[in-house]
Design a binder for these strands. Structure first.
Length: 133
DNA sequence: GCCAACGTTGGC
DNA sequence: GCCAACGTTGGC
């Protein structure tokens, strides 16, 4: 089981929208680094859903329900995965909180905030979950 | 709205 | 293959 973090600007595609849709294909990744991570995702992996720009917080957990396939919105060589919501966090975890947490300083969110699909270690995953209680 | 950081593009 | 210029992202 691998853990990830995917970002979306809430006014583009929000957590609420995902819950209304039940599942979606995660498109719009146009970055080679992010593409590598997308293609490494396995069915059943879980990911944090992060709201960038507005909110700047992790709002929920999603799971990968279909592994990477050709992005239907483009002819170019980009991939999408299908994701479905698992559950919202009881308490959202803000970027501010993450930055204040010593054990989370190596999260990609802190190191490279621009990467839209990021790997998360098991340790980081569990720390974030503990912060969300 | 600004700007720093980063990635990509294109000229050489 | 290097690097300057440009565009985009995202935090503030």
């Amino acid at each position: 089981m691998n853990y990830w973090l995917i970002k979306s600007e809430p006014f583009k595609y929000s957590w609420d929208q995902l819950n209304a849709d039940k599942s979606t294909f995660w498109d719009g990744v146009r970055n080679y680094g992010a593409r590598i991570h997308l293609r490494a995702m396995k069915k059943g992996d879980q990911a944090f859903f992060y709201h960038s720009n507005e909110g700047k917080e992790i709002v929920g957990i999603v799971k990968i329900i279909k592994e990477a396939y050709q992005d239907p919105t483009t002819e170019a060589d980009w991939s999408v995965v299908d994701v479905a919501p698992v559950k919202p966090l009881k308490k959202t975890v803000t970027l501010e909180t993450i930055k204040k947490t010593a054990a989370l300083q190596k999260m990609q969110l802190v190191v490279n905030s621009r990467l839209s699909v990021q790997p998360v270690t098991k340790e980081e995953w569990e720390i974030v979950l503990s912060l969300a209680k």
